[in-house]
Nucleic acid binder design. Sequence first.
DNA 1: ATGCCACCTGGGATCGATCCCACGTGGAGC
DNA 2: GCTCCACGTGGGATCGATCCCAGGTGGCAT
Lengths: 347, 347
Amino acid sequence: MGRRVNGDGTGAAELKRRATIKDVATAAGVSRSTASRALTGRGYVATDVRERVLAAAEDLRYVPDATARYLKQQVSLSLGVLVSDLRNSFYARLAAGVGQAARTQGYSLVLAEDGGSADAQVEAAETFVATRVAGVVVTPVSADVTTYLSRHRIPVIEVDRQFAAGACDAVVVDNHRASAQVIGELIGRGHRRIALFIDETTWTTGRDRHAGYQAALAAAGIALDPDLVVSSGWDVDASRAAAVALLRPSSRPTAVFAANNVLAEGVWRAANDLGLRIPDDLSLVSFDDAPWMSLVTPGLTAVAQDEAALGAAAVQRLLERIADPDAGPETVMMPTQIVHRQSTRAV
Amino acid sequence: MGRRVNGDGTGAAELKRRATIKDVATAAGVSRSTASRALTGRGYVATDVRERVLAAAEDLRYVPDATARYLKQQVSLSLGVLVSDLRNSFYARLAAGVGQAARTQGYSLVLAEDGGSADAQVEAAETFVATRVAGVVVTPVSADVTTYLSRHRIPVIEVDRQFAAGACDAVVVDNHRASAQVIGELIGRGHRRIALFIDETTWTTGRDRHAGYQAALAAAGIALDPDLVVSSGWDVDASRAAAVALLRPSSRPTAVFAANNVLAEGVWRAANDLGLRIPDDLSLVSFDDAPWMSLVTPGLTAVAQDEAALGAAAVQRLLERIADPDAGPETVMMPTQIVHRQSTRAV
DNA sequence: ATGCCACCTGGGATCGATCCCACGTGGAGC
DNA sequence: GCTCCACGTGGGATCGATCCCAGGTGGCAT
């Protein structure tokens, strides 16, 4: 018989059994307690002993069992992240920002998507509770998640919108101000018939963007035309259809402010469907700056949020909250920036 | 003194202490063992007892501690996902697909990004080992992750590209065939000077897309012009700069095949920079269909992969592998589809 | 000489759930 | 009357790491 080099054929030597701290202790000739102190760095260990233990751990390819550690310490080194839809670049970038910040702080990420459903959010929250995450970053769709997690004493931070303002930390942007500013610019360029294309006005995002729109019009003495506030469904297809209706020649606005990137995509597609030229036939501005907006011609003027910074701020605030559970809730306001491209013109 | 309704002011009643199975058992007047059987559904429990236990659990808002369960059972109900960059829509959609499939199978997701670094991949893999994930879905950047995880007996599945072919399950597309098909179409429309814009040819993706390009040219009897195979850096800026160089008038190809969506973006931007009209001055085709490609004018013709399906297939294969650790490794080939838009023309 | 403290080590309890096993009970089959 | 088995329950060990505590040593100040 030939020499058997590797029974499993993977080409990589496998461990028969995962090494535990007991194996490391035995190999180093010390007790579990001492091995633990050497490995965690907590408590007294003689220098030579520490080195022996570390060498043994290396040798045995010891990887501490996080589940055991978490069980004993009653909390894990991972954060829960709950967003609506990773295919939306806003959420993807936010999650990336959270992950980046979490990693530098030694935390790993448990990620869940809810598809916009409150029930799915609570379900995901249950998983977070079960796995004893140290905290949760969520873009909520109702107050349920926050309530549920708070009840189980898990620190939560709401990002982008708030459903538990005053009871829960949050990281948001000044939607009202950004919205008013954008509308103000359009008014400054002569627009009077400015439509607001929006999906909801019950969340803080929709509510404040709507209010900012109204405030800017009021400040300029422009009467509010209810027909110009158009509500749409959630996805691109729905918003495209709604936008086609909005843009029919009879009542067409000279400018449209889309309240988020999905709605902007709907308007963009609708304009193409109808053969409308932007900005000649229609000015268009978006809340949220999605990657495609700098690739199309003309580029879309948009209110940009720094999603990575939002995520990082959320993690920072969350860790502060974990460190001091009794501190008062705080709402962090992040800046926005209007990115001017060529999708608007003076009338 | 007034009545103190809620000391913490959150408006949500908090639990003093998380209920354990012992609390549930006590409340239901049974032993821990019986409570466990009632809750997990494994083993005999009298019907009335089961109901009493479930009621008690509900009442106490009992959420089983997953870390304890995992510790005892030596494996968790979560999957690791390791991708390069969530801001790239390909990875975001892939992760979304994995998450979706995992959730329907009762698994949660531990997500990590590596930013394209092999070291970061191994570091993430360590976390996966520590948290005892049931398996890992990875878009590898070297053989290291797979080796590391296999060594620790954690089932892995490579997606998009393979570094451990024959030793590890994988879900990929037929890059060679898709590439050859796209080039064949360009040749069919009269193109002879077709450039391949590519970032690497050492991974299976780059290698096969390159090979398919060569094969299609060879099949048409077109001599390979090494100057038309242009390598670029990883990010948009690098690929944009490289594309500007490629598209200088003296040696301009009539068509460019960009080997992925980032490169396509670089070429698109470079063409804009140079005032080149697509498809009149240049035909452009992309591997990977990013969202922006259907939004720009003209729309980009692209080889589309169904990222959600890739993710789902990866999860399915991974669970099969978990169920049968000794089965031979399998490579699943997923279909691609050429989405024809208006970025090419006959010459 | 005594006390004190810093340093170092190991034993054993502990976290919360699972699960093996022993120990019932009662009905069916012979 | 006996075995056998399905049903049902609780005790206690177990997973792997942490950490409290007791115990030991040696140096230094009083």
